[in-house]
């Protein structure tokens, strides 16, 4: 096997990876931003290398074997079977077993003083609760960069799976049990994640964002969430609050310190600060929000929120109210 040939064979694979890695927003597991994902990525690169080598050597034997015609061979059948079939695989697999055990051990070791969060999967969104801080939010998880995070995973309905490729592997959210995922986001940034276990009609649009912030900025967000909510700051907002409480909104959604305490839909207490609607189904801006309220089914068909019929004026007031929830 010549070097040129090997390069020729592994080039397409590498090329595809690089091509894809160009996109910076990609939730690329091989572009890890935390120790958990990094150790998996290094295992992955080790195995990609090993796999390419194995592939090239074995495929080489097959192709050369087929092309060489009837010639005397110095390699006996027995040599092929004992060395290629038994010895080499056993050595490689033995090595991999050691790597497996070592990496698994590191990955499952609990960190000291982690930030504890409980996340619950719903069809088709995520409830997020900071137990110690007594803060509740949804679909976007704010964490301080550099601090280990430990998330307890639950499900309210079917099985979901929590997966933020740049931070860690996936762990399922199984009804009736509490699983745990651990990761650390080393640098501030936004890391996209997505439900990885088929959970029904809108499995495709059940995504989440882990937002890692500098410790101070994170702390400011927490403190704001812990402060009692003040009254509306404008007339429009006040009218919007009326709409929210009177219409069907309050039946399903919670806004802390108000009479809206519904639990069927995401908590909206810090909604104004969210980047997306409907678990990353679309960007959070005024036009999208209006469309979502009028008929979210056109954006995310099959989600559990029914269309809401409002007068244009009511809608404007409601938008004003929602955008100012922080």
């Amino acid at each position: 096997m010549t070097r040129a040939r090997r390069r020729a064979l592994s080039l397409p694979a590498l090329g595809l990876v690089l091509l894809a890695a160009c996109s910076r927003q990609s939730p690329n597991a091989l572009d890890p931003e935390g120790p958990a994902a990094k150790s998996v990525a290094s295992v992955a690169w080790l195995m990609f290398g090993l796999a390419t080598a194995v592939y090239v050597v074995v495929a080489g034997f097959i192709i050369i074997g087929a092309l060489r015609g009837k010639k005397e061979s110095r390699i006996s059948d027995g040599a092929f079977i004992w060395i290629g079939g038994l010895l080499v695989p056993c050595v490689i697999l033995g090595g991999l077993a050691v790597v497996t055990v070592k990496t698994t051990d590191t990955l499952r070791k609990p960190d000291a003083n982690p930030l504890r969060i409980e996340a619950t999967g719903y069809q088709f969104w995520w409830a997020v609760e900071y137990k110690d801080e007594k803060v509740t939010t949804a679909n976007e998880i704010r964490v301080p960069a550099g601090r280990p995070v430990e998330i307890g995973l639950h499900s309210k309905d079917v099985i979901h799976s929590f997966w933020v490729p740049q931070l860690a592997g996936k762990v399922d959210m199984v009804p009736g049990q509490r699983n745990v995922i651990r990761f650390t986001a080393e640098k501030p940034g936004e890391y996209r994640g997505q439900c990885a276990e088929f959970c029904g009609l809108q499995h495709a649009k059940m995504a989440l964002l882990v937002i890692a912030e500098e410790a101070g900025e994170y702390q400011r967000w927490v403190t704001r969430q812990q402060r009692p909510r003040g009254g509306p700051s404008s007339e429009r907002e006040a009218a919007g609050e009326q709409v929210f409480m009177r219409s069907s909104c309050a039946g399903c959604h919670t806004v802390r310190d108000t009479e809206a305490q519904g639990t069927l839909g995401p908590d909206l207490s810090d909604f104004g600060g969210r980047k997306s609607l409907g678990a990353l189904a679309t960007e959070n801006n005024r036009a999208n929000l209006a469309g979502w309220i009028e008929n979210s089914q056109s954006i995310k068909p099959g989600n559990l929120m029914p269309p809401v019929q409002l007068e244009p004026d009511e809608l404007l007031n409601l938008l004003e109210y929602l955008e100012n929830l922080r």
């Binding site: 595809l16 894809a20 990609s26 690329n28 997966w163 740049q166 996209r192 997505q194 499995h203």
Partner: peptide
């Protein structure tokens, strides 16, 4: 294989732009 590592989960009926999955 590559799509998997770029974070594309199975059994999704659609995906958004800008995740690096288009070309593949």
């Amino acid at each position: 294989h590559v799509l998997g590592f770029l974070g594309m989960p199975r059994r999704i009926y659609t995906y958004s732009e800008g995740l690096g999955w288009e070309t593949l």
